[in-house]
Design a protein around this nucleic acid. Structure first.
Length: 426
RNA sequence: GGGUCGGUGCCCGAGUGGUUAAUGGGGGCGGACUGUAAAUCCGCUGGCUCUGCCUACGUUGGUUCAAAUCCAACCCGGCCCA
């Protein structure tokens, strides 16, 4: 049982309501075992974006551990709450999403978690009967009427809401807070009531929300859930938390090369955290050299998602990409093709770059050429006004921007129009 | 509803009548360098087949030879009062 909780952060002094402690959790586990009743472990996720990233996977790994121990994971797709937006960690009101967008996101989430795959390969166990319930909170939230909503609102106070750090900061700094944002903690707390949760998993930033769930359960005559708050994964920058909106994420569904090369360059300071939170590797058994540690970490995490073969291939590709940047080597076949069909000749160099889509605008192209960042078949282009008379003289040549961006020019229309580059921006 | 302050480029934030797409920071892109696509240093950062021409400082009008800068109305937000 100890293995289940390598780093539990039990809810303590959680504002309103009593605290839960790890002893109390342990006793409830024992009690559940005696009764032969699995615990209902809640994890809520709002389908606000289309990607699940490594930061989320800490929670899912823990949820999976509960499944493997015989408990019931209750995964709540916050299709209703997503439309409000969790104010946690936000400095501004979220844009409200439409029902269609939320529904589409929800579908991709389940696929990313491994729905339909054997449990050995998936993040959650979708196979074993009784180990997983997937619920959408619109089931019970969409039908709330005004009297019920008012009852919910009566359970908390403005003071309690403003005690929440994010609200306090925004209120203090004069950033607007819409009233509906106060509803978010209450609604997601009501989820705990609706599914009769014994335990809720969340990041440490979810303390307020988890505590709110306890209050609501008590109000509705249920035994309050325990909160297990797990560490927040730092993002690729090594400072801020991993978050889609900060652009410092690694998505679970990213291709092996992209995943490996992002992980390989995280700051040394967070490598140990990644190893601890995302892998089962033993820190002591790893090499001392920080560079090798990074590589081992990147390899292992890539392996978890894509298998050992793909991970090793990604490692090799990453090395060759950095090393021989000429494109003539290993990655030559992967260079995206750009058609010259829509380019009007004669074409000046800066116009060519924008017409082919390698630069966002012709002005940017001009600057890049002047900055010395553009090469044609390995030769640096010096003059943005250099003119090319016909498509034929460019056919088959490779245009390069910086170290990472390549386009093979083709006179005829290509079969695949400009696929995004490896390492391109999200 | 009243009073008051404010809305500037991807983001934050200077600028309060006049050479110039508009200080600075962040982010991004490029260059050099390196154990890494890290760190550091340097350059660039509105658009246009561009030696010039467009479009820009919440919106729409107005004053002026000239406005992001002055005036009016409107929209949006903060604070105080109700």
């Amino acid at each position: 049982m100890a293995d289940l909780f390598p780093a539990p952060r039990p809810l303590s002094q959680a504002g309103p309501g009593e605290a839960s402690s790890s002893e109390a959790l342990a006793s409830r586990l024992v009690e559940a075992g005696r009764q032969g009743r699995p615990l209902r472990v809640k994890l809520g996720i709002d389908p606000t974006g289309s990607d699940i990233h490594l930061g989320h996977s800490i929670l899912f790994r823990k949820l999976r551990a509960f499944q493997d121990a015989g408990h019931t994971a209750v995964l709540i797709i916050g299709d209703f709450t997503a439309r409000i937006g969790d104010p946690t960690g936000k400095s501004a009101t979220r844009v409200q999403l439409t029902a269609e967008v939320v529904a589409a996101n929800a579908r991709t989430y389940l696929a990313q978690l491994g729905q339909g795959q054997p449990k050995e390969l998936s993040l959650l166990d979708f196979e074993t009967p009784g180990r997983l319930e997937v619920r959408r909170n619109s089931e019970w939230l969409a039908g709330l009427d005004l009297p019920q909503t008012i009852e919910l609102l009566g359970i908390s106070t403005v003071g309690q809401m403003l005690a929440k750090e994010d609200f306090a900061n925004r209120y203090g700094s004069g950033t607007p807070i819409s009233l509906h944002e106060f509803l978010y903690p209450l609604l997601q707390g009501y989820d705990s009531v609706a599914i009769a949760a014994d335990l809720e998993l969340g990041g440490t930033d979810q303390k307020f929300n988890v505590a709110m769930g306890r209050d609501l359960q008590r109000h509705f005559g249920q035994r309050p859930q325990f909160g297990m708050l797990l560490p927040i994964l730092p993002g690729l920058d090594g400072v801020l938390k991993m978050s889609k909106s900060l652009g410092n994420t690694v998505g679970l569904q990213e291709d092996p090369l992209s995943m490996y090369s992002k992980l390989e360059k995280v700051p040394d300071g967070v490598v140990a955290e990644y190893l601890t939170l995302l892998t089962d590797l033993d820190l002591a058994s790893l090499p001392e050299n920080p560079r090798e540690r990074q590589r081992a970490m990147a390899l292992e995490i890539t392996r978890q998602r894509h298998g050992a073969g793909a991970a090793l291939a990604a490692q090799a590709d990453a090395a060759s990409l950095v090393g021989g940047a000429q494109g003539a080597g290993a990655a030559a076949a992967e260079v995206p093709v750009a058609s010259l069909a829509d380019v009007n000749f004669p074409a000046k160099a800066f116009y060519l770059l924008s017409a082919v889509g390698i630069c966002a605008s012709s002005s940017e192209a001009r600057r890049q050429i002047q900055g010395g960042g553009v090469k044609l078949d390995g030769d640096k282009l010096a003059d943005p006004n250099q003119e090319f008379a016909t498509a034929a003289e460019l056919d088959g040549k490779v245009l390069q921007l910086g170290k990472k961006t390549f386009r093979r020019l083709v006179a005829a229309a290509p079969a695949v129009p400009g696929a995004p580059l490896q390492g391109a921006q999200p």
